[in-house]
Nucleic acid binder design. Structure first.
Lengths: 189, 189
DNA sequence: TGCACATATGTGCTTTTGCACATATAGTTC
DNA sequence: GAACTATATGTGCAAAAGCACATATGTGCA
């Protein structure tokens, strides 16, 4: 139940509307915690009830009015209290790795295509992260935290990209044939 | 909804009871997909209804009787069909990284303790994985898949462990002071 | 006999999540 | 002026996940 805290932490940066938050969750903090806009609006309503955030309606010219939420002192206290409890290790759920685990029951060409797509995604993010990280020399605690976050993201993407490449190589037909048919392997010697 | 498929894939190895599966999810396949025993028993009931697994009651001496589930041909077909659909990228949810993102609102000594614990966990798993991986020379497709899975697990744990160490260093008080108090920094020059 | 423990299988209830759909305002484009 | 796009905020509903609790068998032990 840390969507709550991900929102509070985001509002700690600067006041935002639900719409802003949704975009924010698609970009920066979304690397650490994913959320969709219905989730965010519902959570904001609860946080307001508890007094952890305050809301202010704002008229805009040329656009629909929006409700901007700010972190209250109670909200700040809540973040602090939460940060003192041990963090819950993230529970892994990866479709792709389950397939790899059951490799002999799986459509290997389809898995290979999947792997190719994954590799491209990891490489993209890898480049994006390292471009951002290159320009940061942390001047305060917040920036230090963000930089460290970027750093683990970068390492993660880099390893995954390299692993995808290796695994694509290992799953080439010519390598699989010899595994599947031990008779051929012996005959070939 | 791939708990279903994680179970099917596990039963593809060898028939198992719900109890066995629960243990299995605590160990090997649990690195790729976590599940608790109520989840598993409920899912098994559904899979049996759909004919994807078959159940057989077994009397044991000295222990309560158990129900052993096997993968059916329909189950095998289901795995194959599932494996042809694109895999859903795993949605990240990490408490700890959210805290790091909001570093200036957080209790830093508590975070440091957390970080220390994490690092130890990553190091343990790192050693465990590399010990297992060292002894495997894949002789068939299944073993190749398992080895690749182990390999990404190992890389993941290694990077996290190294990052934790670096981050612990970066969060030492003597480094933070200069960030928090720009006046001191200037005065010190 | 009573108690703790490991095996084995579940139910009940709440929270969280995700997806589809609904709605309203205002500018832009054809 | 009709259609389309971006902004902005929601509702409804169903699936999935998590946790506490319930239950039964058999072993070992004090």
């Amino acid at each position: 139940m840390a969507l709550k805290h991900a929102i509070l932490v985001s509002l700690g940066d600067t006041p935002m509307s639900g719409y802003d938050l949704a975009k924010h969750f698609d970009e920066s903090i979304g690397f650490f915690w994913r959320a969709t806009h219905p989730q965010i609006y519902r959570e904001l309503a609860k946080l307001k009830d508890k007094g952890l955030v305050s809301a202010e309606e704002m008229q805009q010219q040329g656009r629909p009015k929006r409700t901007v939420y700010s972190l209250t002192d109670a909200g700040r206290q809540e973040i602090l209290a939460w940060s003192r409890q041990p963090s819950t290790p993230d529970s892994v759920k990866d479709d792709f790795l389950v397939r790899l685990y059951g490799l002999d029951h799986v459509d290997i060409p389809a898995l290979r295509e999947d792997l190719q797509l994954r590799m491209e995604g990891h490489r993209d993010r890898c480049e994006r992260f390292s471009a951002i990280a290159a320009g940061i020399e942390p001047r305060n605690i917040t920036e230090l935290g963000r930089l460290r976050g970027l750093e683990i993201g970068l390492r993660y993407e880099r390893e995954w990209a390299a692993w995808c490449e290796e695994t694509l190589e290992a799953l080439k037909d010519e390598h699989l044939v010899s595994l599947e048919d031990p008779v051929m392997k012996i005959a070939g010697q």
